[in-house]
Amino acid sequence: IMNCCEQCGEYLPSKGAGNNVLVIDGQQKRFCCQSCVSEYKQVG
């Protein structure tokens, strides 16, 4: 599985992206930055 930001689609290095993760309905959603997390929450 490719690690990509759920919001902008930016490729995420394998281990460096652990900071910005949401778990929604048991699914891990990865993000490249906190602003993408916030945007995803607003839209979702």
Rank of each mutant, 00 (worst) to 15 (best):
L12E: 12
M2T: 10
C36R: 03
R30F: 09
G18C: 05
C8D: 00
Y40G: 13
C33M: 06
K15G: 14
Q34E: 14
C36M: 01
C33P: 03
K41M: 10
D25M: 03
C32G: 04
I24C: 08
Q7M: 07
S38G: 11
C36D: 05
C5Q: 00
C8Q: 01
Q27G: 11
R30A: 14
N20H: 14
V43Q: 11
N20D: 05
A17V: 06
C32A: 03
V23F: 15
Y11K: 15
G26A: 10
G18D: 15
D25A: 08
Q28M: 08
Q42H: 10
Q34N: 11
I1P: 06
S35T: 09
L22D: 12
E10Y: 07
G44A: 14
G16Q: 13
E6G: 07
V23T: 14
C8L: 00
R30Q: 15
G18T: 03
Y11V: 14
L12S: 01
A17L: 06
I24W: 11
Q28L: 03
M2G: 07
F31R: 03
Q34I: 02
Y40F: 03
C33I: 00
C32V: 03
V43C: 07
C4D: 12
R30C: 15
M2E: 14
S35L: 08
V21S: 07
N3D: 11
K15D: 15
C5S: 01
F31M: 04
C5F: 00
K15P: 15
M2R: 07
D25V: 01
C4V: 11
F31K: 00
Y40V: 09
C8A: 01
Q7L: 06
Q42C: 11
Q28S: 07
C4R: 12
C4N: 15
C5E: 03
M2Q: 08
I24K: 10
A17P: 04
G26V: 05
V43L: 06
P13G: 04
Q28A: 08
C8V: 00
E10G: 04
Q28H: 14
N19Y: 02
Q28P: 10
M2D: 11
V21P: 02
C5W: 00
K41W: 03
L22W: 06
K15L: 09
L22M: 01
G16R: 01
C36W: 01
Y11E: 15
S35H: 09
G18P: 12
A17I: 02
Q7H: 10
E10D: 06
P13H: 06
C5V: 00
V37C: 12
C8M: 00
I1S: 07
E10F: 00
C32W: 01
A17G: 09
C32H: 07
N19A: 13
N20Y: 10
Y40Q: 13
I1F: 04
F31W: 01
C4E: 13
G9E: 02
V21W: 12
C32N: 01
Q34L: 06
Q42F: 00
L22P: 10
D25R: 06
G9M: 06
E6P: 05
K15Y: 13
K29Y: 11
G44T: 08
K15C: 12
C32F: 01
K29E: 05
C32Q: 01
E6L: 06
V37W: 09
S38M: 11
L22F: 07
I24R: 10
V23Q: 15
Q27S: 07
K29G: 05
E6Q: 08
G9F: 12
Q42E: 09
E10C: 00
L12M: 02
Q27W: 06
G18R: 02
V21D: 12
D25W: 01
N19R: 05
Q42W: 03
V21I: 00
C32T: 02
V21K: 15
S14D: 15
M2L: 09
S35F: 06
C4M: 08
G18S: 03
E39L: 05
R30L: 15
V37P: 08
C36Y: 02
E39S: 13
D25C: 05
G16A: 10
I24T: 15
C5D: 01
G9H: 00
L12K: 04
V37S: 07
C5T: 01
C4P: 08
V43S: 07
Q42R: 13
I24Q: 07
N20S: 10
N3K: 05
G44W: 06
G16S: 11
K15V: 12
E6C: 04
Y40H: 00
Q34K: 06
D25P: 02
N3Y: 00
L12H: 00
Y40M: 07
N3P: 03
Q28T: 11
C32L: 02
K15Q: 13
K15S: 14
S38E: 13
K41G: 13
Y11R: 15
Q42M: 08
Q42G: 13
L22Q: 11
G44P: 06
S14A: 14
P13W: 01
E39D: 00
S35W: 08
C32R: 04
A17D: 12
C5M: 00
N20C: 12
R30W: 12
C33E: 12
A17E: 14
G9Y: 14
Y11W: 05
K41L: 08
E39C: 15
K29L: 10
R30V: 15
P13A: 00
L22Y: 14
V23R: 12
C5L: 00
I24D: 11
V37D: 06
Q27P: 06
I24L: 12
C5Y: 00
K29I: 05
L22T: 10
I1W: 00
Y11L: 13
S35V: 09
C36T: 09
L22I: 08
G9A: 07
P13L: 02
S14M: 03
G18W: 06
S14R: 02
D25I: 11
E6Y: 05
D25K: 07
M2A: 07
V21R: 05
P13T: 09
S38P: 04
S38Y: 00
